[in-house]
Simulated assay, not measured.
Amino acid sequence: MDAEVFDEFPSPADELAGRTIAVIGYGNQGHAQAQNLRDSGCEVLVGNRDDEFRAAAQDAGFEVVTIEDAARRAQIMLLLIPDEVQPEVFRDQIAPGLQDGDTIVVASGYNVHFGLLDIADTVDIVMVAPRMIGEGVRDHYERRESVPCLVSVEHDASGRARGTALAVASGIGVLRGAVSSSVREEVALDLFSEQAIWPSIMAIFQAGYDVLANAGFSDDAILDELYLSGEPAEILGRVSRVGMIGQLGLHSKTSQYGQLTNLLRSGAFTDQMRERFAGVLNDQILSGAFSQDWSGSDTEPDADARIAALRKKAEATSLSVAERAVLDRWS
């Protein structure tokens, strides 16, 4: 299914003239998006609690105010604080200051899609979601290069939500080539990558390590071959430019033959993955089960403790133990 792909907006500063943008949270995405918008000629202030990010914003020359003040003064708010704290911060510090026709801009669809933000019907809701870490968003802007981005209008109370979304994306430097999407699509794809793809990749490395270690090969050689050399990162970099099959031309003919023959023999394994992935998508993500488990009011306060307990279990696996020993020897 094809989606609408956008081109550059004529002038973000003109479209947003007379409106103040508040970047809520000067962290990973906040620092990049605030600087890009300012450099694009937009009026930007930063709303941040009293921490190291507040100091960084002040050092960068921004007017930094409390989140409450930012919500009262701005007409457009980029909500760039972590998903897990957004509902409480929005309820207590942002919602009381919102006016009819204001715009909430999210970079993650999570809280909007799962109904965790109580946003008045008189407020526009749009999504501008760069598919890049903040440093990359800033670096690409300075090189006048765009990055992939998903853009959507979720609620248009003012009649100008689309124009606001496109202008904000343009000001950040991510509109050229951006794709029309929705918070549902963004959150499903994001969570699917995190809960299906990456755990499977880690499980494959774990299984590979166990087989090779049982065959008597050394931990250093195994882990160097699997990923510690950095070769997988190099391969993925090529994949992003020429595709999965296209990058095979950079490998030896022996490598290409071995990869292709075993890829084409993996039908049963691929069928098993499809079944598992469908369960993750439908039973965990789209059903709301994961959101309820992670973001339920009775579980959020101990989020750090829950993650720490899971990390402790993961760090006890054979792969993790071997990895730590190898990295310690290399340090």
Rank of each mutant, 00 (worst) to 15 (best):
G243T: 02
D283G: 04
T164M: 06
R162L: 14
A32M: 03
L327D: 05
N262H: 13
S291N: 12
Q272V: 01
L37Y: 03
T270K: 05
L228D: 02
Q284I: 04
D14C: 11
E194W: 08
G18F: 01
A107R: 06
R265G: 11
T261F: 04
V183R: 04
W198G: 03
D102T: 08
Q284D: 10
E43K: 14
F205M: 07
R324A: 14
L80G: 01
L117W: 07
F217E: 04
D283E: 14
V106C: 12
E186D: 14
D92A: 12
K253S: 10
A215K: 10
A221W: 11
E142Y: 01
R238H: 07
L286C: 06
N262A: 13
E142P: 02
E142K: 11
Q259F: 10
S240Y: 03
F9Q: 07
P12G: 07
E84C: 00
T20E: 06
N214T: 11
E225P: 01
D7E: 06
K253A: 09
G173F: 07
L226G: 15
R276Y: 12
G41E: 09
D210W: 06
E8L: 14
I76T: 08
G208H: 05
A303E: 09
S40P: 09
Q256E: 12
S152G: 11
Q86A: 10
G30Q: 02
R324L: 11
V151P: 14
L223T: 15
Q29M: 11
I245G: 01
Q93W: 13
L116M: 00
P96E: 03
A55H: 08
D118L: 04
L79C: 01
N111T: 03
V153C: 04
A34N: 03
V46L: 03
S318Y: 11
A305K: 05
P10F: 02
I201M: 08
L175M: 01
A325C: 00
R306G: 15
A213G: 06
R54H: 11
A188D: 07
E135N: 11
G279W: 15
P232E: 07
A325V: 04
I204R: 02
D50T: 14
S287V: 05
F290N: 05
G230R: 07
G25A: 07
R329S: 10
